[in-house]
Each structure stands twice: as C-alpha cells, then as structure tokens.
Computed example of a mutant assay.
Amino acid sequence: MTTRSGSATYEGFGKDGKGHVSTQSGILSDTQYGFNSRFEEGPGTNPEELIAAAHASCFTMALSFALAKEGYADGKLETTAKVTLDKDGDGFTITRSALDLKATIAGIDPAKFEEIAAGAKANCPVSKVLNADITLTHSLNA
C-alpha cells in the first residue's frame, strides 16, 4: 500500500479568500489557489487542474506499463486531460475528464494499440476514482 498526501489552507472566505496548496514531495509548496484561479483567469492553480494533471499522468503511466508488458520498448506518449466542472444545484460536480493522447510507437498495429489503450484507461487508478464520463481520443504515429 502506498499513501501520498497533499495539504491546503484557506484564509478568508468565499470569493475574498486566498488559499495555498502543497504536496508531500514539495513539488507544489504553498502554491496559490482561490476563486480567481478556479473560476476566472487569475494566477495560481485549482483543484480541477490538479485532477487533470493527475489523470493525464496516471493514464500515461498505466499505458506505458501496459505497452511494456506487451513487449514494446520504445516510443513517446503525450496525454492532455481536460476536466469539466459543471454547476450542480447549489454546488458543482466534475462531470467529465477527456483524455487526448498522441502516441509514437514503432511497429504497433493500430487495432492492438487501441486495445492496449482502452485497457490502460479502464485500469488507471485515477480513472477508477473519478465519477465522471471519461473519454479517450488518440492519434498514433508508428
């Protein structure tokens, strides 16, 4: 079992509040977040951006391991995740995470690649935890 942690603080409340988020590794350390970075174009990060990065990195790593298991040793995977936050009554819900994958893998059959990518999406731990419509589009340059 592996456990990782992150932390957040928020001073003030609502739109006027300001927050900071940090990760156990220190990669994020007191990184700014708040209303402006979440719902406008203000500086800092936001939970949806962090979830998108987590989903993209988790799926890409899952696909990398699935490709290695099938005997592929070289290539490049580039994944972008776009997380959608929709109004839900008085609150909000993450309704979608769209993964856009560009892959360069020498010698792979496109049908085999689609099968491996679908399996990686189904087995990615972050895909499993999201209660959202998860779509995967991809292009393959062999």
Rank of each mutant, 00 (worst) to 15 (best):
Ala8Phe: 02
Gly14Phe: 06
Arg38Thr: 08
Gly71Leu: 13
His55Arg: 09
Gly12Val: 03
Gln24Val: 12
Ala56Ser: 13
Tyr33Gly: 01
Arg4Ile: 08
Ala98Ser: 05
Lys15Glu: 13
Gly17Glu: 09
Ala53Val: 07
Thr80Tyr: 07
Ser5Ile: 12
Ala62Gly: 12
Ala117Gln: 03
Lys112Asp: 04
Ser22Gln: 04
Lys87Met: 07
Thr45Ala: 08
Pro47Leu: 04
Ala81Glu: 01
Asp133Leu: 05
Val21Lys: 01
Asp88Gly: 03
Ala120Lys: 09
Phe39Gln: 04
Asp74Ala: 14
Glu78Ser: 15
Ala81Trp: 03
Cys58Trp: 00
Lys112Cys: 01
Leu50Met: 14
His20Gln: 14
Gly6Thr: 14
Leu99Pro: 05
Val129Ser: 15
Ala132Asn: 00
Lys87Tyr: 01
Leu140Ala: 13
Glu70His: 10
Glu11Pro: 07
Ala52Phe: 02
Ala98Gln: 11
Thr2His: 12
Phe39Glu: 12
Ala103Gly: 10
Asn123Val: 08
Arg38Ala: 08
Asp109Ile: 02
Lys87Phe: 00
Ala53Pro: 07
Thr104Asp: 01
Thr137Glu: 14
Ser37Ala: 11
Leu67Asp: 05
His138Leu: 11
Ser127Asp: 04
Thr137Gln: 04
Ser7Ala: 13
Gly17Gln: 08
Thr84Tyr: 04
Asn131Trp: 03
Cys58Asp: 01
Asp88Lys: 10
Ser64Phe: 03
Asp90Lys: 12
Thr2Ala: 13
Thr31Gln: 13
Gly107Met: 06
Asp88Leu: 00
Tyr33Arg: 01
Val21Gln: 01
Ser139Phe: 04
Leu140Val: 01
Phe113Gln: 01
Gly26Tyr: 06
Thr135Arg: 06
Phe59His: 05
Pro110His: 04
Ala98Ile: 03
Ala106Gly: 10
Asp109Pro: 02
Ala122Thr: 12
Ile116Leu: 08
Thr2Val: 09
Asn46Pro: 14
Lys87Leu: 05
Ala54Pro: 03
Ala142Asp: 07
Ser139Leu: 03
Tyr33Pro: 00
Ala103Trp: 06
Cys124Thr: 11
Gly71Ser: 11
Thr60Asp: 01
Ile105Leu: 14
Asp109His: 03
Phe13Trp: 09
Cys58Ala: 00
Met1Cys: 14
Thr104Val: 13
Asp16Trp: 01
Gln24Asp: 15
Asp133His: 09
Ser25Gly: 12
Thr3Trp: 04
Ala118Arg: 11
Ala66Thr: 06
Tyr72Pro: 03
Ile134Met: 02
Ala53Arg: 04
Thr93Ser: 13
Asp16Phe: 05
Ala54Ser: 15
Phe92Gln: 05
Val129Met: 14
Gly17Phe: 04
Ala122Asp: 15
Glu49Val: 10
His55Thr: 07
Leu99Asn: 03
